[in-house]
């Protein structure tokens, strides 16, 4: 029991600390690639710290959902983070459902965020919610297909089990089905984290914004919780991608030396993935909203082909 608590504590600390750092790194690298100076890598920490100390304004029309949503978003993201293997193959929490629970806990957070966008009665929030739901309704099947492909390879939907089997078959990521699933999941992650071909994370002033439109009414600590939760969600999805497809350096136990090695490999892989995301964000323009389903249809077809080719190749 104490061991499990210690593991959970360690991973929770890692989640809370690394998530804003990754957002900061992506922002800075993107700015540098566009020959801007860009904010400091540590800027997201400062933003969170500042927001947490501020007072907040709650609209008169808001109900309890408005106050509950930030906590739900934050807690579901952190819970999902505890269920994914980050530095060791054994995740601290594997109580129920495995990867299905991961997908639907994230969906629960998104559901409440969309509700809170509607809750204040502002038309902007409603627009954001409706768009978010449209996109996630198409992204979710693609994500499930890609994840099922990996789960089939491991004969289990338990994430620790999946990571263990990925470690034991080190060249498996070269199989076509894994590559297709990786591509599908990459597109889904771009869409889920609100990155550029789908949504612009760096704006508050666009008619086309999605995530920012939903959280427009939030301020102060609630906004900090939502932003922090969003960056944790992004970190968890990236972790899912790097650790199930490229499991190099995942330690098989929780010893100190194994954890050190696992942690350094993990950060390296995250950095590489962040580079890919930055490249995609810089080389693409934002899509028209009605073109987004086309991108997600590509992800869906790739996921379906991945699942089919597990049986055929």
């Amino acid at each position: 029991m104490i061991e499990m608590l210690a593991k959970s504590g360690f991973q929770l600390l890692l989640l809370l600390l690394v998530a804003p750092l990754i957002s900061g790194i992506i922002k800075t690298m993107k700015a540098r690639l566009q020959t801007r100076c860009g904010p400091n890598v540590l800027q997201p920490y400062r933003d969170l710290f500042k927001l947490l100390r501020k007072g907040m304004v709650i609209p008169d029309t808001a109900s309890w959902i408005f106050s509950a949503a930030p906590y739900i978003v934050f807690v579901t993201a952190a819970l999902v983070g505890l269920m994914t293997p980050m530095t060791a193959t054994d995740a601290p929490l594997s109580l129920f459902g495995g990867v299905l629970a991961v997908v639907y806990l994230l969906a629960l957070g998104r559901f409440f965020l969309a509700l809170s966008g509607l809750d204040t009665g502002s038309s902007f929030g409603g627009l954001g919610s409706s768009r978010e739901m449209t996109i996630s309704a198409i992204a979710e099947p693609a994500m499930m297909l890609a994840i099922f492909t990996v789960a089939l390879g491991a004969n289990s939907t338990n994430l620790s089990e999946m990571a263990r089997s990925a470690v034991s078959q080190s060249w498996r990521f070269l199989a076509p089905s894994q590559m297709l699933a990786f591509a599908a999941l990459f597109i889904v992650i771009i869409a889920e984290t609100g990155r550029i071909p789908v949504d612009n994370p760096a704006t508050h002033l666009e008619l086309t914004m999605i995530h920012e439109a939903m959280i427009l009414e939030y301020s102060g600590p609630y906004l900090a919780l939502i932003e922090w939760g969003a960056s944790i969600k992004q970190l968890v999805l990236m972790t899912l991608l790097v650790n199930t497809f490229f499991p190099f350096g995942l330690s098989s136990d929780w010893s100190v030396s194994g954890l050190g090695l696992g942690l350094s490999f993990y950060l390296l892989k995250l950095l590489l993935l962040a580079c890919c995301i930055v490249l995609v964000e810089t080389t693409n323009a934002k899509m028209r909203l009605f073109r987004v389903p086309e991108l997600l249809a590509v992800a869906f077809i790739l996921g379906a082909l991945a699942l089919i080719s597990t049986f055929l190749f």
Binding site: L174, P176, V298, I301, L302
Partner: peptide, 19 residues
Amino acid sequence: TMITLMAALVLVLQIATVG
């Protein structure tokens, strides 16, 4: 393995041209 992988990539590129 490599040939199968590259064949899969060729297929992915073909589907990409459709979109």
